[in-house]
Amino acid sequence: MSPIHIALVGVGKIARDQHLPSIEKTPDFKLIAAASRHGTVDDIPNYKSIEDMLEAVPEIEAVSLCMPPQHRYEAAHKALSAGKHVFLEKPPGATLSEVEDLQALAAEKGLSLFASWHSRYAPAVEAAKTFLASTTMRSMKVIWKEDVRHWHPNQEWIWQAGGLGVFDPGINALSIVTHILPRPVFITKATLEFPENRDAPIAADIKFTDAAGLDLSAEFDWRQTGKQSWDIIAETDAGRMVLSEGGAKLSVDGTLKHDEPEQEYPMLYRRFAEIIKAGRSDVDIAPLRHVADAFMLGRRKFVDAFYD
């Protein structure tokens, strides 16, 4: 079977670090065009807008969208309307409503829409899910703290309304939690810390529970310096489970159980090819729903101004 002709929209840091190398490694795809206001990709046609690209390169079969979430709906709608399968970088949109609208459009057109959650493909995530399914969980704590100046230097869009702020990394934790837990959870309380000069939060403290009364808490913070923290800790009848380094390692009672090389984005593209061939979509909005709930239920606390 010949490779699927794919185009990339939004040639920024995440596209260069993850998408371009992953597409190159995935034989199911061939990159044939790119569109970006500022960046270009060598050895293929480049355009300033998705409209120009779709008009000039009709043989495009799928489009991968890597621009900020505030602008993703319009591009996705144009691609689906033009008959292209669509890969959405996380989060899949700025609102739940627009993602649901895209899902309906994809179904109407008979196209595949993929809401990608790369952290779910971290090496030890499936092992953690299997472990939790085999025991009774008493509590869970999520600690997701990193240095925004290191990971998002001078990226103003993340501080704008719809840019999610600390939920940009925090939603990665939520994508793992919603995948590995045996039952759905819901937010009961949240405090969101907003720098006085920003429209998006820099930290969040969230409490969750489920129908059985699970004690689940999450701490997100973008002011971490030194060692970064991406840990999910569960107290269970079978011992203390620690899913660390963003899902890369799993240990139980201090014994390492799972540690393999990271292949998150190549696995995302393999999944995208799989759903295209199967003629279906993969759109789970549970992580984004939790973010929306946190904004709806959360108490806002204003803190010192933040400057890059």
Results as ranks from 00 to 15, higher is better:
Asp221Phe: 11
Gln155Trp: 08
Ala33Lys: 02
Val283Gly: 07
Ile232Gly: 01
Pro27Asp: 12
His258Asn: 11
Ala82Thr: 11
Leu132Pro: 00
Ile143Pro: 00
Lys30Leu: 13
Leu250Gly: 01
Ile60Gln: 04
Glu262Gly: 11
Phe306Val: 02
Ala33Glu: 02
Val11Trp: 00
Leu132Gly: 00
His77Met: 14
Asp308Trp: 13
Arg299Gly: 09
Lys13Thr: 03
Phe131Tyr: 07
Ala238Glu: 03
Glu193Gly: 15
Arg299Cys: 07
Asp52Gln: 11
Ser217Leu: 09
Leu192Gln: 09
Met137Pro: 02
Glu126Ser: 14
Asp210Val: 11
Cys66Val: 06
Ala248Lys: 05
His5Cys: 12
Asp205Asn: 13
Ser134Arg: 03
Ala124Asp: 04
Val57Trp: 00
Glu59Cys: 02
Ala200Met: 13
Asp199Phe: 05
Ile143Lys: 07
Ser22Arg: 03
Ala104Ser: 15
Pro68Trp: 03
Gln228Val: 14
Gln103Val: 04
Asp42Gln: 15
Val303Ser: 08
Gly93Arg: 02
Met137Tyr: 01
His71Trp: 08
Ser217Asp: 13
Ala200Gly: 05
Pro123Lys: 10
Gly279Asp: 04
Pro3Trp: 01
Asn172His: 13
Gln70Trp: 05
Ser97His: 12
Glu264Asp: 11
Leu297Cys: 04
Gln103Ile: 00
Gln103Trp: 09
Arg223Gln: 13
Arg198Glu: 13
Ala278Leu: 11
Phe114Lys: 04
Leu20His: 05
Ala161Gly: 13
Arg300Val: 08
Phe306Thr: 01
Glu260Pro: 10
Glu89Tyr: 11
Lys141Val: 05
Ile180Glu: 01
Val166Gln: 06
Ile171Phe: 04
Glu108Trp: 12
Val283Arg: 05
Gly110Arg: 04
Ile6Asp: 06
Asp28Met: 09
Gly298Val: 08
Phe131Asn: 00
His38Ala: 14
Ala190Lys: 00
Leu250Gln: 01
Val166Asp: 07
Glu55Phe: 06
Ala211Val: 14
Ala286Gly: 02
Gln160Asn: 12
Leu8Tyr: 03
Leu54Arg: 07
Glu89Val: 08
Gly298Thr: 09
Pro3Gln: 07
Ile206Glu: 03
Pro261Asn: 10
